[in-house]
């Protein structure tokens, strides 16, 4: 995720101090990975240098945490372009799960057990996200659903691989 574009987008809703920006980011997008203050201030310095934000006011006391930032016209254009550019779909062709499976088969280890262990681990996380979703608001539900759909896709792949394990073993050992 582009942190600078996200912070810029938040600034478009109105000028904010650095700590307000961090709080808004963490509330909406941080979830398990909140921003460090250092990240906010280094990002704002860069945006300032590039003319995408400006200092709207400085409170007495000095220090970067006292600055209030506002987005510039160039910043608004930057956000506009970022939102209009589609994200590249993840091709998922580099899979650690697949690599582990092939290596297990190549080295005559128990590939079936590897798939079982992975399935349990995926389900464990899916249960956790399902609990969180059940008790969360709509925003929570949507972010959890995003993760759940991806985990479900992994699980379907694990099932497919388990069903074709004998055939795959023959192919990789050829």
């Amino acid at each position: 995720m582009s942190i600078s574009h996200t912070l810029l987008g938040l600034l478009e809703t109105g000028p904010r101090h650095g700590y307000d920006l961090k709080r808004a980011f963490d509330e909406r997008f941080g979830h398990d990975r909140p921003l460090h203050y250092g990240q906010v201030y280094s990002t704002m310095s860069r945006l300032l240098k590039n003319g995408l934000v400006e200092v709207d006011g400085i409170e007495a006391g000095g220090g970067p945490e006292r600055k209030r930032y506002a987005i510039t016209d160039a910043g608004i254009t930057d956000v506009e372009e970022w939102l209009a550019t589609p994200e590249k779909p993840e091709p998922y062709l580099q899979s650690t799960l697949y690599t582990k499976l092939v290596l297990a088969l190549l080295t005559d280890r128990d590939a079936s057990s590897l798939l079982d262990t992975q399935r349990s681990e995926h389900l464990r996380l899916m249960r956790e996200l399902t609990r969180r979703k059940t008790h969360g608001d709509l925003a929570d539900q949507l972010i959890c659903d995003h993760a759940l759909f991806h985990l479900e896709a992994d699980l379907r792949w694990l099932e497919t691989a388990a069903a074709r394990l004998d055939k795959l073993a023959k192919e990789v050992r050829r």
Partner: peptide, 14 residues
């Protein structure tokens, strides 16, 4: 057979 449904369980038997 759906993982998203199974995610409402406490544990699984395969």
């Amino acid at each position: 057979h759906e993982a998203r449904v199974a995610a409402y369980s406490d544990r699984e038997i395969v």
